[in-house]
Design a protein around this nucleic acid. Sequence first.
DNA 1: CTGAAAGCGCTTACAG
DNA 2: CTGAAAGCGCTTACAG
Lengths: 341, 341
Amino acid sequence: MGRITIKDVAKEAGVSTATVSYVMNEKKNIPESTREQVLAAAEKLGYVSNYSARSMRLNRSNLIGVIIPQTEPGSQMVFENPFYSEILSSIEYCARQNGYHVIVSGTNADENYLKLAQQRNLDGIIIIGMYKEQSYTDLRNTRIPIVLVDSYMDDHYFHAIRINDRHAGYIATRHLIENGHRKIAFLSGAIKDGGVMKLRYAGYCDALDEFGIPRNADYVLTESVGFDSGRRLARKMADELDVTAAFCTADIIAIGVIKELNEQERLIPANYSIVGVDNLSIARYSIPGLTTVGQNIYHKGEKAVEMILNAIADPAAGKQEFILPITLVERESVRKIDLPA
Amino acid sequence: MGRITIKDVAKEAGVSTATVSYVMNEKKNIPESTREQVLAAAEKLGYVSNYSARSMRLNRSNLIGVIIPQTEPGSQMVFENPFYSEILSSIEYCARQNGYHVIVSGTNADENYLKLAQQRNLDGIIIIGMYKEQSYTDLRNTRIPIVLVDSYMDDHYFHAIRINDRHAGYIATRHLIENGHRKIAFLSGAIKDGGVMKLRYAGYCDALDEFGIPRNADYVLTESVGFDSGRRLARKMADELDVTAAFCTADIIAIGVIKELNEQERLIPANYSIVGVDNLSIARYSIPGLTTVGQNIYHKGEKAVEMILNAIADPAAGKQEFILPITLVERESVRKIDLPA
DNA sequence: CTGAAAGCGCTTACAG
DNA sequence: CTGAAAGCGCTTACAG
């Protein structure tokens, strides 16, 4: 049988391939009668356009690349943090609604990805998370529009969408303080310059300062972002620290913390109050339900797609930046305690 | 600047484009000296091959489509069950290791997908879950190799990978029985002909029968597969049934059940023992840890890729089928109770 | 309004 | 061993 091409349709409709192409792309003023003939022929033959050919001709692939950090290189753990699958789901859906398809990749945004981007002639790239500096400069050189999600790469070339991470740290910590807590641990992934965690830490400090609570360096514990890190962090907190609450900078950490404390028969929120960030589904599944600083992940993905589409449509337009609103989602992991006299 | 093509490399190396192509594809006996010249030129210019052109010429895209069921049409809830993100992660990784890229789609496997498959000239498709009959016949007509994951579509054309679902139901239920339970609820997604749930139900019956425990139709409660379904199922079970244990046919249901029971202050495993199926990450996160029938999801994705690659390499070869081993993963959600006298 | 033709970047059968 | 050339399926400037 072989593929049905524009040529077959042209023959069937008794017109030239040019006319078929015009009809398919709704170009020019093709009279209704011709139009209908072509459409009927296409329908009859089951014609579907070949994107490879189209892509080659137009130098545009209708393909968006999405990069998700690979926790452990060479491992399958791409989606250990459910945040990634939630946002990917939303990106895929919104892209499809706009006639784009999505190529996901768990690669680091390294030389390899550069290759993929060029091989596939990607129209745009959405990068989730932070990578090494070098990756960005390489990618920038491709001139492909790029939207950064949750990154503080400070380069005018990249469009960016994120939350106000400092504020997230602030409202989480303030919530704990308002519930009477004074000794609050900060459990986090690594605090890196220009990283999200550093800002959440700044917000944590803001809240402490505002209420005149002295900072205590011992209360700041860092690891990577993950469930098992959360468990280790909790162990350390329980063993070494004299705190009544913990602000965890990611829900997945908080979930690990809750699990570990539970195994040590320390109750949440009776013994420790916990607040997370992200409002993942697991925050709702958790027992007790996890109080967390919520962002609308669906909206985040949607907005990322909108931005990349804008950038593709008008590459010369300026940098787009969007700060997603956040709100505290109260569940059951925080207890009100008596204020110390 | 524009794209660097094979032409540019040819000029730089002082050879024809044919020679460049031969070198790139490791064809023919190109003498080492020529080979090095070409490679040096390609390196110098930063040449990357254009897959659109390649694809058109070879009628092969190096693209694998992955279809994941969309829970609610038109919604973002593609990945509500973390099973999907876990297997996708593994598929993407293995495909990439073999020089393929992955286009994910949350579409139903419908006419729309047919279009995508043809537009993109997909080399193979991996379909996860069950869809309406019609979808399969359409897709089969494309002659694109297809691997079905967790489907009992009984058609010689499709390759298939799954677990022994009946056995899964059996070992989960037997585990409960061996721990002294006699009144065991069956909490599940819809039981459909040819569906996974029907077989898990058969396995549940097998275990009951083997131990001479009468079946009780009232103990069989069905809903869809999801967290909130799990909650509703648990409510119904607690209100209407006199059971000591529940076999949940998916971890995500079990997690909902545990959450709901906990809110009703019924303890797991003190009041109810629970077993799930899948061994998702959340089974480990859960409090108490969820005892479940585990499958190696990473391995499942890896095998699916291996099968699709075989099928692409040799489309004439026969149907491949693979049954993934399963094991009971014991955690803390099952209590041993005294056998009734 | 419509068609012939060039060209996007590749690969490969063929000729030398 | 190497190159000229055809052709994969499209789109579009150009001519009529």
